[in-house]
Design a protein around this nucleic acid. Structure first.
Lengths: 113, 113
DNA sequence: AAACTGCGTTCACTATTTGAACGCATGATG
DNA sequence: CATCATGCGTTCAAATAGTGAACGCAGTTT
């Protein structure tokens, strides 16, 4: 599944290092090579990334992923959306931790009895 | 998969309402009936819950899930473990949001150019 | 020329989750 | 009494998601 999380992270990593390999990307993302390939392809399909070739330091032909103009433009929106999502998650977590704290205290109190 | 998250949540919900049905539980947990059944069975298997019968208001035979002494005892530990996990998650999220904020600002700045 | 390296790609396999369908027990209805 | 309706736990085929070994290719090294 290609979620905003991976859209954001891949665009970010690719922007920082266009000559990154799928294996490096997979490691950085903490997901498998197969899923990385799938997500990357998804971003190319919707026109946010394009694949290009270049010669690396050893004059070896290699791939390079580049953000398209659309990719550059939409990255902000994706980032904002992901940020919003994360902040909501954060808020929920805060409430949950508060509740867990109460639950934990209660349990300990009962043990003392 | 039976994680601390569901161990904690199920023990909590069952303690609050032992006569809860698996369908109610599933809805409260936000997961499917099948998974709920699987998790519940897991808790019974390891001896944290036991199944009992009772007569409900319409004198209808129904199930009731009860925490065993072991369940009561271990619930605190599970809660603590889950709390610790959640707090770590919270911290990570905080860092991630901070980074997203920087990334978002940067994007917006570039748009202004 | 043969072996080696590192790349993207593929896909059979495993893991996880879902929810429709079933059998059973009870209450309600004719 | 017989039938239907309701609600329960249980099951499991199907859907969905994710993995990583294996492959073909291209360039480099021996």
């Amino acid at each position: 599944m290609l979620t905003d999380e991976y859209r954001y992270k891949i665009l970010k990593l690719v922007q920082e290092k266009p000559e990154i390999s799928q294996r490096e990307l997979a490691k950085a993302l903490g997901i498998s090579l197969g899923k990385t390939n799938f997500c990357l392809k998804g971003l190319v399909d919707v026109g946010l990334l394009k694949v290009s070739n270049f010669r690396n330091s050893q004059n070896k032909l290699a791939y390079m992923y580049l953000l398209t103009p659309k990719g550059i433009e939409e990255k902000t929106g994706i980032t904002m959306r992901f940020l919003k999502y994360k902040m909501q998650e954060y808020e929920n977590l805060q409430a949950e931790i508060e509740e867990l704290r109460r639950a934990a205290e209660e349990s300990v109190e009962k043990e003392v009895e």
